[in-house]
Design a protein around this nucleic acid. Structure first.
Length: 496
RNA sequence: GGCGGUGUAGCCAAGUGGUAAGGCGGAGGUCUGCAAAACCUCUAUUCGCCGGUUCGAAUCCGGCCGCCGCCUCCA
């Protein structure tokens, strides 16, 4: 069974057949760098990160291009507000964006073209469109003539006559032949950034940059074009019209993929409602994997309701997964000296089968249009099995235990990795391996300190001085260290 | 008005013809000095409502109701 993806333009799931065998070319609309990105933007970027990771997990060689819109009305306006130049503003928020993505553990795209670095490429396309009659100049602006592209509306499933004619800004309306025509080039007003063009100084319209840059780096008829669902119309519809009108007969994109919207407390995020939540704000309270877990829990095309409660739930479920990995590593650490032998008892061969079968099921779900929510279900079933086995293995150390545990660890980490979980930070919140064995000549390590503390606490427990032992445990918890007492002594881990 | 989506337990959420995954929360139990972690059992005879097709429907068809998004910048 191969990968299937839902293609917006056909409104169906289709077999993913890449243009070039074994390779995927994908483009996704990146940020307009005029502000910190919000949690809704983050969802889209995280979804495409999930998609990209899974494609690579499946063996594809992925070339991922994501643009940076660094010239646009919003940037100009915002720069005015902040009293800096548009260039400075774009630079500032591009840095913030990169920091956010880095913190979230998003794999950086292979190419991140900036609009301002590709004006020449855009002008070339615009000139071509004007020459072929698909676009026209009007008072220093250049518009795409929608009536010249018969396929207009196919992507978004719109019939233009049936659209509500909404109020558009007056000047533009006067210059357009048809209300649905859109700007390829806008003449600049005094004080705005501009580039020279055959139609005078101006700047590119928004849609043209994606058409020009995607084709420049990926060629025509590339595999996947993505973005948020709200970009289907007009942005992607327009991109498609331009690109296909520019190279007649050629298809622009093979598969259109759109990420579902995120709502806050069941409402759309909007300035007027004042409920815009930046990714930064959420990151101040929750670690990146909690946010990722929240996103993975809903299929990428479904609407996702974001709330404090949903974050709390996601955190708890992430912890369940983390605890399992922790317990696994902890037991393996204690089994360190023992040899790896073949599984002997039925229970063990059964579990190894279960673990390997889990990977098959996981892939089946992910192959079905990246159903991460269903795939997570498989992971959690696996967690329950592994946890149960850990308890058994603690009791009777059978020779095959180590093999089972190692195999469980391998698969569990593999599946988490495919989803992008636990990839952002060097340590999985205090896993034994993460803080083990780093000896310093000068300062004692946390490990060494904890060993001493736990030993002292153990003495207190042995003489039933629970007041002292509990004081140590409570005190450490306040410092972010969780103590757990088990049948083989106490262990600790860093709380996030 | 047009287009699209969606309605599954207290909450979140998979499931598109074969008899309701998973997570959170809740109840009880096991283990434990107590915690924590973990395990076990229970927590939707039923999938917005009404009809229809079918041996069989949450899944297909028709109608109705609710919610959301897009149609203007928007991930």
């Amino acid at each position: 069974m191969g990968l299937k993806v839902y293609n917006t333009i056909s409104r169906k799931k289709e077999d993913l057949v890449p243009r070039e065998k074994g390779k995927i070319s994908m483009y996704s609309c990146g940020p307009t760098v005029y502000n910190f990105i919000h949690i809704g933007n983050a969802r889209t970027f995280l979804n495409f990160d999930m998609i990209r990771r899974y494609l690579e997990f499946s063996g594809y060689e992925v070339t991922f291009v994501q643009n940076i819109t660094d010239v646009d009305d919003k940037i100009i306006n915002r720069a005015r507000e902040e009293g800096i130049t548009p260039e400075e503003l774009a630079e500032k928020y591009l840095e913030a964006f990169n920091r956010d993505m880095g913190e979230m553990g998003v794999v950086p795209p292979d190419i991140t073209p900036k609009a301002t670095g590709h004006i020449g490429d855009m002008l070339k396309v615009i000139e071509g469109l004007v020459a072929s009659g698909a676009a026209y100049e009007s008072d220093g602006d250049v518009y795409f003539d929608v009536s010249k592209f018969p396929g207009y509306g196919e992507l978004s499933g719109r019939v233009l006559d049936e659209q509500q004619v909404t109020s558009q800004c007056g000047v533009e309306m006067e210059r357009k032949k048809n209300p649905n025509d859109f700007a390829l080039w806008k003449s600049s007003k005094p004080g705005e950034p501009y580039w020279e063009s055959p139609w005078g100084p101006g700047r590119p319209g928004w849609h043209i940059e994606c058409s020009a840059m995607s084709v420049k780096y990926l060629g025509v008829d590339f595999d996947i074009h993505g973005g948020g669902q709200d970009l289907i119309f007009p942005h992607h519809e327009n991109e498609r019209a331009q690109a296909e009108a520019y190279s007649p007969g050629g298809r622009f994109v093979k598969y259109w993929m759109h990420s579902g919207m995120l709502n806050i407390d069941k409402e759309k995020m909007s300035k007027s409602l004042g409920n815009i939540k930046s990714l930064r704000e959420v990151l101040d309270e929750y670690k990146p994997d909690v946010i990722r877990m929240l996103m993975l829990g809903t299929h990428y095309r479904s609407p996702l309701n974001f709330s404090d409660e949903s974050l709390v739930d996601a955190k708890a479920s992430l912890e369940r997964l983390q605890n399992c990995i922790f317990n696994l590593k902890d037991l393996l650490k204690r089994l360190d000296g023992s040899k790896v032998s073949m599984a002997t008892i039925d229970r063990e061969t059964e579990l190894i089968d279960y673990v390997n079968n889990a990977e098959v099921e996981f892939r089946n779900h992910m192959d079905d249009d990246f159903n991460s929510a269903a795939a997570l279900g498989v992971v959690f079933n696996l967690v329950r099995e592994i946890n149960a086995y850990i308890t058994e293995a603690e009791e009777h150390r059978s020779p095959g235990a180590k093999l089972v545990l190692l195999e469980s660890e391998r698969i569990l980490e593999k599946l988490c990795g495919a989803l992008g979980l636990f990839q952002s930070s060097p340590e999985v919140a205090g896993l034994p391996s993460a803080h083990a064995g780093r000896k310093s000549e000068t300062a004692p390590t946390l490990d060494e300190m904890m060993e001493l503390i736990l030993e002292v606490r153990q003495r207190a427990r042995e003489r039933k001085d629970f007041e002292s032992s509990d004081a140590i445990r409570d005190g450490l918890l306040k410092l972010g260290i969780q103590i757990e007492d088990g049948r083989e002594g106490s262990r600790w881990r860093l709380e996030r």
